[in-house]
Amino acid sequence: MTVICYRNMGECCAIISSVSASCHRKYIMKDWRVLLVDDEEEFRSTLAERLRRRGIAVNEAGGGEEAFRIIEAFAPQVIVLDVLMPGIGGLQVLKRVKADHPNIQVILLTGLGTTEEGRELGAFDYLIKPIHIEKLIEKIGEALDHN
């Protein structure tokens, strides 16, 4: 059994088999900065609130333009990005993000199954709506590990 203690957390996590990953993340999530970009406000605000409840620092953007502004100020590690949006589409946002900030990982959200192009443009992975929040958190964790 391995025990990892996180600094400034005051808690230690016993890493035993499969419990290890979620236990591990529960403590490091507090350092995560995630930007959620989706034009569907009801979905975006609820999901953002739920992520915040889990200790993740989440910022929201309703479209591409807004997202770019927030990126500069907020410097997210991961962007959860809807593909189909009016105005600047998700794939365009992805392209620009990867060009300007290659270290930011992007997880695409889609209601449609077409994500091959997204992968080619450098997206870390994709999730098809409706999503399980646990799956999203896991994916964010993987993206950060990847970094």
Binding site: E40, T46, R50, G111, L112, K129, P130, I133
Partner: peptide, 28 residues
């Protein structure tokens, strides 16, 4: 089928999040 799935997925995602939100609140 893809078109229908997409159109259903978006409202379904909102319902899912709202239900999740309710569960979070009930848990807390």
């Amino acid at each position: 089928a893809a078109g229908i799935a997409h159109e259903i997925n978006n409202p379904l995602a909102i319902i899912g999040e709202k239900a999740g939100w309710m569960k979070d609140l009930l848990d807390e």
